[in-house]
Write a protein that binds this DNA or RNA. Structure first.
Lengths: 233, 233
DNA sequence: TTCGCTCTGTTCGCTTGCGTACATCCAATG
DNA sequence: CATTGGATGTACGCAAGCGAACAGAGCGAA
């Protein structure tokens, strides 16, 4: 990897001096699936920019009730609230797919932000986008059926991994959607019967992307549009 | 009203020079119930600081499916995304309870933010708090029963109005919760039977606050704690 | 006073998802 | 090769909320 480049879209979008500065002050870490990057109440000491891994922010009400609030990959960052000045976050931060991240101390990033308005602007814009996506998720989890939400979630993984295959069990997907494992098995089974997915023992392959997008709820397209409109020029 | 004071908590928290500046550049508007302050796609031209009115951000998927995403009163502001640089918002912005707001041009507020780090810090912190509350709402609308969510919503109105009585019909509450009017009637009826509420034709009175808080979902307390921890010293 | 509109109460069958339990099947490990 | 643990398939009754429809009740306007 060239030190002036990164596989993270947010960082790549910055001008060269700023990007260089961030890379200089950050470490590259390899995270394996299942790693707990943070727990409710942990201080927001670091900010992470995923490169090729996928990280889920899980909000738990108790042992039984919990759900994925935000799925972060190369398109985003982890620690938005930190750069807005919030010290602690309520999330269980789970690495759902192994890969590397750039880690930078929040304090350090704040200094860079203070000196580089372009960095500040872009990251704040990302925060704004995230807020709209959170709002959309609220509506989604309330109204949309498991199958549509499952389709959306799988597509989100695809986008973040740039791959039509992924390692995810029904159980994990159920945890993220906040539904029973059985519910995912049923929905996924229906999709497999229609040859839209193929899966076995934790390995999932999308075999018909178009159909999967058609089945996913609007929220998938809405989120994408929100991101693209604001963050891609 | 003293020109150096405001009934809005965010503004009141600022240091005197900053507060004075904001008040100088803002207009006070009286908004009546039912006013549409903005629609999906509208430019974020102004930022509003409610003083004694309550404003709901509604996200609509279509004519039938929609819900309240955020309820704003004297404790907050309307236009957080704007100060993060987002130009448009997807919300239908509805005045749910008449009262006055301070309105300031986004551009003007941005200038003040640029010159007053304390303002920037406080408003960004509010943005961070809002993100956590949005996450909580996502979990809430997915898991919690109508009655608990109704209790929470009524308590949120109480807090923003500083009053145990309010003007709200079952239909309006249903729209905000994203459920049928009948669902609200049932839940509210049960609460009235237990002498926790009293209501008639759009007028609601809380007659047992403690019980109402006990019935409301955790999200009410969680949101409050998030706000207080971050924004009250 | 009467009409009309809004607000509230109640009912119907229906669908989705829940909680639980158990059966099967595959892969890794010894 | 046999065992074991994780992943998936299927079934059951149950509860919450849905969509639709209609009835009564109160308030304001004519």
């Amino acid at each position: 990897m060239n030190t002036l480049e990164s596989s993270n879209q947010l960082i790549n979008h910055l001008d060269a001096p700023a990007r260089k500065l961030i890379l200089k002050h950050s470490d590259e870490l390899l995270l394996s699936t299942g790693t707990v990057l943070g727990q409710p109440g942990d201080a927001n000491e670091y900010v992470y920019f995923p490169m090729n891994c996928v990280i889920a922010l899980m909000l738990q009400q108790n042992e039984e009730k919990g759900m994925e609030i935000c799925l972060v990959g190369r398109e985003g960052m982890l620690g938005v609230e930190a750069i807005l000045g919030v010290n602690e976050s309520p999330y269980l931060i789970l690495v759902q797919n192994e890969g590397s991240v750039l880690r930078i101390a929040t304090e350090q990033l704040m200094k860079i932000i203070a000196r580089h308005p372009s960095v500040e602007q872009h990251l704040h814009l990302y925060a704004g986008v995230l807020m709209q996506q959170l709002a959309q998720s609220s509506l989604c989890s309330h109204y949309h059926a498991v199958q549509a939400r499952l389709a959306r979630l799988i597509l989100m993984f695809r986008d973040r991994l740039h791959s039509n295959t992924m390692q995810l069990t029904h159980g994990l997907l159920a945890d993220m959607l906040g539904v029973r494992r059985v519910g995912v098995t049923k929905a996924a089974g229906a999709l497999q019967k229609r040859r839209i997915l193929r899966y076995a023992r934790g390995h999932i392959e999308i075999t018909n992307e178009g159909a999967l997008e058609a089945i996913s709820c609007v929220c998938y397209a809405t989120d994408k549009a929100t991101y693209d409109t604001n963050l891609i020029e």
